[in-house]
């Protein structure tokens, strides 16, 4: 019953006043009482509704995860063959209430030619699927909507639904290790924009 005052529409108030079994209250007084009921009822729900919405939107307030470079593999472990190989990215990660040490948080493709290494995010920029290397190792192909990329990650088929090339990641060779800045990017748009 208490929530009903909120649902009330003012035009009805005047009408009801005359159609009930009870004598009609003075229209002005009735209008004020109705307004008062709506105001008090609305105010009563303010705190729970506001704190509920705030809790639901809480993820937006959270600071972004840090995106420092992390070691992904020994350089020697990346075959020097110009073909992308998948490596797991393992790092510390805060997941809401848990702090994980050395948790596999995703994967990257590393492609080594001589001493230079390129890193690609495995996620398809179209709709976020995990892009595969084709069985013949000649190109990347996304298993979901058949986006096709060459081995450098560039879209190589005009029919590909992907709006941009696969996302490259910053790479550094430190001593004998490959370090990568592991980041995800918003899918479905032509420009590469990091996920906050």
């Amino acid at each position: 019953m208490s929530e009903k005052p909120q649902a009330a529409a003012e035009p009805q108030v005047a009408e009801e006043g005359s159609s009930g079994t009870a004598p009609a209250p003075a229209p002005r007084r009735g209008f004020l009482a109705g307004m008062g009921a709506i105001a008090a009822g609305g105010l009563a729900f303010l705190a729970p509704v506001w704190s509920g919405i705030r809790a639901a939107l809480e993820p937006l307030e959270r600071p972004p995860q840090d995106t420092d470079l992390v070691p992904v593999a020994k350089l020697a472990a990346v075959p020097d063959d110009g073909v992308p190989h998948k490596f797991r990215v393992v790092m510390d990660r805060v997941d809401a209430w848990n702090t994980h040490r050395q948790l596999p948080v995703g994967a990257v493709y590393l492609r080594r030619t001589g001493d230079s290494v390129e890193a690609l995010n495995v996620v398809c920029p179209h709709a976020g699927c995990f892009v595969n290397v084709a069985a013949d190792r000649s190109r990347f192909v996304c298993p979901c909507h058949k986006s096709s990329f060459d081995l450098s990650g560039a879209v190589n088929d005009p029919a590909s639904p992907s709006p941009r090339d696969m996302d490259t990641l910053d790479v550094e060779i430190r001593d004998d290790e490959v370090w990568v800045r592991f980041q995800n990017f918003l899918p479905g748009r032509a420009e590469k924009e990091p996920v906050a």
Binding site: P5, V13, E16, G30, A33, G34, G36
Partner: peptide
């Protein structure tokens, strides 16, 4: 009646 007297 309920609206608006009791509702208030």
């Amino acid at each position: 009646q309920f609206w608006p007297d009791q509702a208030l």
